[in-house]
């Protein structure tokens, strides 16, 4: 079954999320490259994308037919969604093993959510 691994971390913490121009950024990127290769080779990786920081976010609601937009993320929290993977695993145990290898697992939090399968039996 498919699992979404949602990568949460503190955008303002430079040790977790260094500036892309800084030398600290390269090893984190290398970690993601290695993860993508390993999960891809194992046939587990379905897709995955990083997200631009929440300073670029727009939150939108439709109320009474009217579109209301706000600058910024939906919830003001310390840790924000910074990217995600969709992994195809046999069980939660396998998904947990892969999630532990995502570089930000050691500085932030990976939320593992099962993706329901609504396809016909």
């Amino acid at each position: 079954m498919k699992y979404a691994c949602l990568i949460y971390s503190d955008e303002t913490d430079p040790s977790a999320n260094p500036d892309p121009a800084s030398p600290e950024f390269a090893p984190i990127m290398a970690g993601y490259m290695a993860f993508g290769e390993e999960a891809g080779a194992a046939g587990v990786l379905v897709t995955g994308e990083p997200l631009e920081p929440t300073s670029t976010a727009t939150s939108l609601q439709v109320r009474d037919g009217e579109v209301i937009t706000t600058d910024g993320p939906f919830a003001e929290t310390k840790e924000h969604l910074g990217g995600f993977y969709i992994l195809d695993c046999d069980s939660l145990d396998e998904a947990m093993k892969w999630a532990a290898k995502i570089p930000h697992a050691s500085s932030g939090t990976i939320e593992i959510r099962p993706v329901p399968d609504f396809s016909a039996p």
């Binding site: 079954m1 699992y3 695993c89 046999d90 069980s91 939660l92 145990d93 998904a95 593992i112 099962p114 329901p116």
Partner: peptide, 10 residues
């Protein structure tokens, strides 16, 4: 059931 917690001895 929904999260696929496996019934298997590790």
């Amino acid at each position: 059931v929904a999260a696929g917690v496996p019934l298997a001895a590790p």
